[in-house]
Amino acid sequence: MADDIILEARNLVREYRTKEGIFGKEHVNRALKGISFSLERGKTLAVVGESGCGKSTLARILTLIDPATSGELLIEGNPIDISKEKLSKDMRSKVQIVFQNPYGSLNPRQRVGDVLTEPLMINTTMSPAERRDKAMEMLVKVGLGPEHFNRYPHMFSGGQRQRIAIGRALVLNPSLLILDEPVSALDLSVQAQILNLLADLQDEFNLTYLFISHDLSVVRYIADKVMVMYFGEVVEYGTRDEVFGNPQHEYTQTLFNATPQADIAHIKARLAASN
């Protein structure tokens, strides 16, 4: 297929309605104000923005947890509206998510093996033995070992937990993975390992990533396309080189200027300026 579009969003809007008391006036809070983008198979789209820009709301809509208030969402060309029809197991498997905080995203009372086999138990007709094999295979794929199968999450470090979370997301063979700040809570050295792992897995399974992040240095490293969000709107959308090379919107420029830089030329300039 020439235009192998995995995910397409057309004018997505999400509103939250809150009331003050029983008789109070209703407030409408627009978290997303008409988001449109499309994403090709095997590519990575980075969504950049600061807290309150609507990126988490977008993640909830794309993972089919919350419905959009209006707008269209197409996954592999099929329109999906979870407020109207129940999601098929097949569709459920297509989109999976990895969260920011590896300490909160794993059930503390669930063994690693159960974390990985539960999605299979619910969404497939595999036998317990097949599920176990598949989970073991996935455990090895994300860089852990079969000996970890029966352990509980609290015995693992942050990086290892994030590997388990990635394994859980991939065990259903999704085509699209939403990565919600997957490395922000990790130490620098572990961050590098997880980014490498994500890159390897993307090659191996031809995965499509939607990478939500506030860290521009990570985005620059991993993204094909970049979308900058500000208060529920897309203010910049283009290829990585376009956005980083020639940012159009004022907010994008502010964001770039605010990002601390670790290159030597920059340090020299700073030291020279202060003397």
């Binding site: 459920r92 998510i97 539960e118 619910i122």
Partner: peptide, 26 residues
């Protein structure tokens, strides 16, 4: 409100299972 509950929902866990198997032990 914790992320592992949302993760369970993304992997298709139904409400009853969510209540008794995912959340209750915690």
């Amino acid at each position: 409100s914790r992320e592992y509950v949302m993760a369970a929902r993304v992997s298709g866990v139904g409400t009853l299972r969510l209540m008794f198997v995912t959340v209750l032990p915690n």
